[in-house]
């Protein structure tokens, strides 16, 4: 479980790390749109996106392996969608006499896999170069416009950062409870699916109880420091836009233009494919 990179910050002091989180989120959104807008079977567009990912990874000084590892988390999804395309795409000509796999099917299986992988790679660079707290702050800034419709932006961002903050704590707690129950003879690895699900009860209930306890303690701690929501609250880290962000935006704009150019100035229909 701990081997999965998705959502794990890789601290460094690079250009990409120093960029503004909100801008990085916008760039990732633009990148994802670019990946999705690559026209069916125009693999050159993917080449451009891949080049972009590789460049950003190199600039961010994140090991390539770390970025690639993020694919581990969704490998099942990739294989699943590829298989679906392989077996159920009936257009095109069969690869062999009487075969049920067509050349179109094979092509679209590869196309879908590459598309999903590229999206995940891009997103994982964001989480590798941006700490969860920065990420939550970045989202908060991006959501400010929603204040007009009375959306509690600050509270929403707070909920997010607390959730992120508690992931490692809960993992640790889970580990501990599993060990304690194992020591009492609990068996998580044998029996059918139903039995295994039932075996998790002695883990899930203490986990639930302890998360309520942590929530209570956190609430008390915040209360003790007079936390009162967003009203009159200033920021320790102000969201500032620097020349780095401008360069990032310009390069991203270049990426989008290049992809659209590859598509033959054809952008929207493919987004929904």
């Amino acid at each position: 479980m701990r081997e999965v990179t998705f959502g794990q910050y890789f601290p460094s002091n690079s250009f990409v790390h120093k960029m503004n989180a909100s801008i990085k989120i916008l760039i990732v959104i633009a990148y994802i749109v670019a990946v999705f807008s690559v026209k069916q079977f125009h693999f050159l567009g993917f080449g451009i996106c891949l080049a972009f990912v590789i460049t950003v990874t190199a600039v961010a000084k994140v090991p390539f392996l770390k970025v690639l590892k993020s694919l581990k988390a969704i490998i099942f999804f990739i294989v699943f969608s590829a298989v679906l395309q392989l077996f159920f795409n009936k257009s095109g000509t069969p690869l062999w006499e009487g075969g049920f796999i067509t050349d179109e099917g094979l092509k679209s299986a590869i196309f879908v896999s590459v598309k999903v992988s590229l999206v995940v790679l891009g997103a994982s660079i964001l989480t590798l170069t941006t700490s969860p707290i920065e990420l939550a702050d970045g989202i908060e800034v991006l959501l400010y416009p929603l204040k007009i419709v009375r959306f509690p932006v600050h509270e929403f961002a707070l909920i997010m950062s607390i959730a992120l903050r508690f992931i490692p704590t809960l993992m640790e707690e889970t580990d501990r409870i599993i060990k304690a129950q194992k020591a009492r003879g609990a068996d998580f690895d044998s029996g059918n699916l139903f039995k295994r699900a039932k075996a998790l009860i002695p883990v899930l209930i203490p986990l639930l109880v302890s998360s309520f306890r942590s929530a209570d303690e956190l609430a008390d701690a915040m209360d003790a420091r007079c936390y009162a929501g967003s009203k009159n609250r200033t920021k320790f880290k102000k969201s500032v836009i620097t020349w780095r962000d401008l360069i990032g935006l310009i390069i991203t704009a270049g990426l989008v233009v290049a992809v659209v150019y590859c598509n033959g100035f054809y952008i929207f229909p493919a987004v929904f494919l």
Binding site: R176, K179, A180, A183, R184, G185, I201, P202, V203, P206
Partner: peptide, 18 residues
């Protein structure tokens, strides 16, 4: 083995569930 070697972790009350 585990029935012969009992283990009590820190704050064992956090393992209660039933």
């Amino acid at each position: 083995l585990r029935s012969k070697v009992g283990m009590v972790f820190q704050y064992p009350e956090y393992q209660l569930f039933a």
